[in-house]
Design a protein around this nucleic acid. Structure first.
Ligand SMILES: [Mn+2]
Ligand SMILES: [Mn+2]
Ligand SMILES: [Zn+2]
Ligand SMILES: [Zn+2]
Lengths: 160, 160
DNA sequence: TGCAAATATGTAATGATTACTAAGAAGGAA
DNA sequence: TTCCTTCTTAGTAATCATTACATATTTGCA
């Protein structure tokens, strides 16, 4: 059973943005994805039941969500494409350089890390990005992306 | 007085790559930069005393250094451009979304963080990326990029 | 010195993202 | 409900960092 996050639509409303079926669908898709999707990936998913959807709209919605701080950007996972972060809890991200999926890893040390950053620069931290790159098990379900040491992908290149 | 790192040229030699004046100059430039430069930035710096240098050569050399693991990629600092990491010690990076420079921040918690990652996925971590975004003081010397809470840039957008 | 393989350069291509604009929809006022 | 203003969408074109390619040059070694 898949948990589901909430709050993206609410965040848009609170920030005074209008609600459209496109935005609702994109937020809905985002809230059920745990692989840190790209714009293209979200586009394909939502377009399936919203054939008129434009890729531009996806980019615009993501940009809006970024600006209000509802999501953040994790950058590339070896595919030169931006992956988006919906999980606002401090955590570690594990990116697979072969299948280009990113999984969350709970961490206790990350709290201390953020404390160090706060201490160093004050309270104006806008966002953070903690990603480690490796090779995961190849599994179809993002939730099973366990990054188990056994039987990884063959090789990968670390480029942005 | 500015410290200077060493080892990039040696790393290339050990990996069996040929040495050229271009590569030497690019490695030299990299080892004296503490702002996590971009390809374009390195190009401009080295081109000043190497007028025949090509931007492609800079990209190729950076890619080679990435492949042998001598440097890593930190991704964008709000400028949609790849910034490179020369400091191989585990540390936190502070990126300024206005001047797009990245400074190092020593951290003790980062050790625990990496231990968690190792534990979770084994020893095959290829590289890591720990970056926090904010606004720094505007100062010309990268080493003085202190991210002091007082008098920051006005505003910044968090996009990749 | 001579040669094969690696590298540098200049240019063209790629591709993700952004800019632009006309058409369409949301939401408040009447 | 209807109207109107403003925001949003969708389609297309433009941007620009990065990569691919083809040639000329250089390196490292015999
Ligand atoms: Mn995450
Ligand atoms: Mn650094
Ligand atoms: Zn994988
Ligand atoms: Zn700054």
């Amino acid at each position: 059973m898949v948990k589901k996050r909430a709050g993206l639509v609410e965040a848009l409303k609170e920030a005074g943005f209008r609600m459209t079926p496109q935005r609702t669908a994109i937020c809905e898709a985002l809230s059920t994805r745990f692989d840190h999707p790209t714009a293209q990936s979200l586009y394909e998913q939502v377009k399936a039941e919203y054939s008129s959807l434009s890729l531009t709209t996806v980019y615009q919605t993501l940009d809006t969500l970024l600006r209000i701080g509802a999501i953040t950007s994790l950058g590339s996972a070896g595919d030169d494409t931006i992956h988006f972060e919906v999980n606002t809890d401090p955590h570690i991200n594990l990116a697979c350089l072969t299948c280009h999926r990113i999984c969350d890893l709970n961490s206790t040390a990350i709290k201390a890390l953020e404390a160090e950053v706060q201490q160093a620069i004050g309270s104006k931290v806008l966002s953070g990005r903690v990603v480690y790159y490796s090779e995961c098990l190849e599994q179809s379900d993002p939730l099973d992306c366990q990054f188990n040491p056994a039987s990884r992908h063959k090789e990968g290149r670390v480029d942005e």
